[in-house]
Nucleic acid binder design. Sequence first.
DNA 1: ATGTGC
Length: 502
Amino acid sequence: MTTREVAGFELRKVREHVWELPREGDMNVPARVLASESLLEEIGGDDTLQQLRNATHLPGIAAPALCMPDGHQGYGFPVGGVGAIDAENGCISPGAVGYDINCGVRMVRTDLTYDDVRGREEELVDALFEAIPSGLGGGGVIGGTADAIEGALERGVEWAVEEGYGVESDLARCEDEGRRSDARPEYVSQKAMDRGRNQMGSLGSGNHFLEVQRVTDVFREEVAAEYGLEEDGIVVLIHCGSRGLGHQTCNDYLRRIEQEHGDLLDDLPDKELAAAPAGSQLAEEYYGAMGACINFAWANRQLITHQARETFGEVFDADPIEDLGMELLYDVAHNIAKKETHEIGVDAEGNPAVGDAVADREERELYVHRKGATRAFPAGNADVPEVYRGVGQPVIIPGSMGAGSYVLRGGDESMSVSFGSTAHGAGRLMSRTQAKQEFWGGDVQDDLEDGQQIYVKAQSGATIAEEAPGVYKDIDEVIRVSDDLGIGDKVARTFPVCNIKG
DNA sequence: ATGTGC
């Protein structure tokens, strides 16, 4: 058997791209990293493997803790981590969801081609930058009245479309139709709502952005046609989350877990993994509040979509839907937990496992935590919207602003390998602090424009440095692993035209 | 990610 030592951990190669940290000591389950050898080496460059091992201590974790190929260290639980935890006897962990609840990505397709926008990149980027608030702090596209915030928390995209910020067909092209029905806005604190109030329809900062892209490659023609994509077509990618509202909510519940469930915390190897026991009042409250933040983030992306449509309409002097075909392709959430039913069994060594090869399988209700991981349900799955059920769920994975992005479809192996999940991005290679030492924002911006005709406009040069292409892993390699494993299959590749960010 | 902190 092949083993490999990475960052002091002895990993066992189960098969191509699957590396296992065997169960030992206090681990409840093994851990697995889905990566090529080069990505595994990069994943070993920070605390990801230790954090993944720590996650196996979470009470009720029902199968190996998983790290996707783009994994890197995060708060307590790795970004790129998937943790499936028993929803009756286990726990739910805010750190395994992430501070930015329902950080996610959506893609809007268009009927425009690259020839239509070539030469007009600066006009377009200026107009988008003007229309869409970005950067740290407040300022949204609408005022956050009590009715607006309540509608967004309770009903997500449904609320936004009813208010005129979208079209009926947008609803079916979001996970859960853009509305978590188990949301409980009454469990979101006043302080969190106050922070979200004037951020409705805003990108935020960090790795969040809106990018106009052109489709450069189509790998699966039939699927691409179902998604409305063809070579040279223009698409719009929007990456953002629940802003200060989700951040405050995560913080609120981490503090409450420390106060009310200190005993559980004492048994965990890292306080940042703080979790509320399943069935406790606090677990119910966090789950309901998280659902409301999920809805808020969806409404936020919907408001930004509206602004992007209006802006394209003005720049190209046309109706964005009727003339430009700006329909939502799909919206994915990549920082959430959700109650899902999966079949769990035991493997040859007696460890809990999923997959066709495991014995004594039974259906269990789980809190599937996807933190920096994208749901990737295959063709035929009842939770894939009807319009895409024949080909599989669209999976949108942004790369860096110099590298472009991918559209995948949920692969046939995803349910048995990764609880129906794949990667969410290129994955950072270095910290923000280190990035600012290595890069200067203005230089990065000039290089992108002069070298690759990519027009970037940002509120802050520091943000451009923190998000420089060199700060990220190789998106092509991340996607190769996903495609090889059959968890997310390549459909199309895009390349940036222009980008606005915080 | 974040009114850029414990």
